[in-house]
Design a protein around this nucleic acid. Structure first.
Length: 412
RNA sequence: GCGGGUGUAGCUCAGUUGGUUAGAGCGCCAGGUUGUGGUCCUGGAUGUCGUGAGUUCGAAUCUCAUCACUCGCCCCA
């Protein structure tokens, strides 16, 4: 291993990549703001218990994917593998139950020690939202609608589809889980090795198996919908109707599940087929049991998270870089630096060449995709003016120094 | 964590049955005279052939290990 290599599964984002990345974040935040969400910035590390208790001691994330270390105080610290736990912790430690309902947006790096693949990194980035304190289905519709709108705003509407399911409330889930385990236990010899493990740890996951043998067993398994109580059925109906009413079509996907106990009712995923095995691009659900499980006041919650790298890879075009003005001084003492400072203060993006003759500098200005070159020569200066060359049209004119800001307005 | 593929200049790749100075295109730099770009012409630089061992008179070419990337599984954004 060379220290000159980035750590496995980490990346440097430069130029076009960084602009795509930034675009995803900005569009998500801007859209969330229109839905009334404000930003919360939580630490990227927490006490390990924050994650082990919220994600469940048996989940893959906790058992084998966390970046955990002991700090100099002897505390066990973990780099956050996802965003919800930190937000929930902040909600409790900040006493934010005074401010319900609460709509929070977050963004930033997450860390999971997994085998890297396309669209799956060890340090990756998410944007996400949480809506706390609303237990009715209107919240689900609003949150999913926001997710859909983010994808629309990014131009990805035709590349993703929305899958929706309900897990029912605690009572419905417990009843169903019992029935499912009973059924699957009767078919142990037909299940794959993975699914036998799932049966122990996370039986609902068997429904989602890609193994053909498992699929055959699952085909005759009891259906969750048959175990939904009145309240749960009703809730789901309202979510579906609500999504219809805002023009966000969803496909009901009975095998879409969440394993952890605090999840309930709505589960959804926006998926794409364009990223290989990592098809999920934005996903979330309702987690009414989470905050109380962490020791806070019983509080409803629903949210989603989206993978910034995955979305970034789906963008059709890269946002353009700034198009600066290029100042080209001819001679040493023509005041290029003060002029650059003055124009920058006036709001222009300004590049200053560092070396070379006029031809070379024009060439560089061109490569920077500059809108115009400001040629500062002795002749022009003697007339208190600068030569301004429009690099798109090739037209060149002399502009008096005093009128520069006004006359350059079209290049801003 | 498990299985398959790949790894040659900044980028995309070529490299004959192992043979001596490792190539192309793009990009980069310089020049085509002293203040005018995007085209064109000419010239130039750049590689521990991912890394480390081994086989061999000789390895970018064969073997092994290791690292990274990649595809799939697991899981997930």
């Amino acid at each position: 291993m060379s220290v000159l290599q980035p750590v496995r599964g980490t990346h440097d984002l430069l130029a076009e990549e960084s602009r795509r990345h930034r675009r995803v974040e900005d569009v998500a935040f801007e859209t969330a703001r229109r839905y009334g969400f404000g930003e919360i910035i939580t630490p990227i590390f927490e006490f390990t218990e924050v994650f082990s208790r919220t994600l469940g001691e048996t989940s893959d994330v906790v058992t084998k994917e966390m970046y955990t270390f002991t700090d100099r105080s002897g505390d066990s610290i973990t780099l956050r593998p996802e965003g919800t736990a930190g937000v929930a912790r902040a909600f409790i430690s900040g006493g934010l139950s005074q401010h319900l309902p609460l709509k929070l947006f977050y963004r930033g790096p997450m860390f999971r020690h997994e085998r890297p693949q396309k669209g799956r990194l060890r340090q990756f980035h998410q944007v996400g939202v949480e809506l706390l304190g609303v237990d009715g289905p209107q919240a689900d519709v609003e949150v999913i609608g926001l997710g859909a709108q983010v994808l629309v705003a990014l131009g990805l509407k035709d590349k993703v589809r929305l899958e929706l399911n309900t897990l029912g409330d605690a009572e419905s889930r417990a009843a169903y889980r019992e029935a499912l385990v009973r059924y699957l236990s009767g078919h142990r010899n037909e299940l794959s090795k993975e699914s036998l493990e799932r049966l122990e740890r996370n039986p609902l996951r068997v429904l989602d198996s890609k193994d053909e043998g498992d699929k055959a067993v699952v085909a005759d398994a009891p259906l969750l919908t048959e175990y939904l109580n009145e309240l749960s059925r009703n809730f789901f109906e309202h979510v579906r109707a609500g999504l219809d009413s805002i023009g966000v079509p969803a496909e009901i996907s009975p095998r879409l599940v969440r394993g952890l106990d605090y999840y309930c009712h709505t589960a959804f995923e926006f998926t794409t087929t364009a990223l290989g095995a990592q098809g999920t691009v934005l996903a979330g659900g309702r987690y009414d049991g989470l905050i109380s499980q962490m020791g806070g006041p019983s509080t409803a919650g629903i949210g989603w998270a989206a993978g910034v790298e995955r979305l970034s890879m789906l963008l059709d075009e890269t946002p353009p870089a700034d198009r600066p003005l290029a100042i080209i001084p001819m001679g040493a003492d023509v005041g290029a630096l003060p002029l650059a400072q003055r124009l920058r203060q006036a709001g222009f993006a300004v590049e200053l060449g560092y070396s070379g003759n006029l031809k070379k500098r024009l060439n560089r200005a061109n490569k920077l995709n500059a809108r115009a070159a400001l040629i500062l020569g002795e002749d022009e200066l003697s007339r208190q003016a600068v030569a301004v060359r429009d690099l798109d049209t090739g037209e060149q004119e002399e502009i008096p120094l005093v009128a520069l800001e006004d006359r350059l307005a079209r290049f801003r």
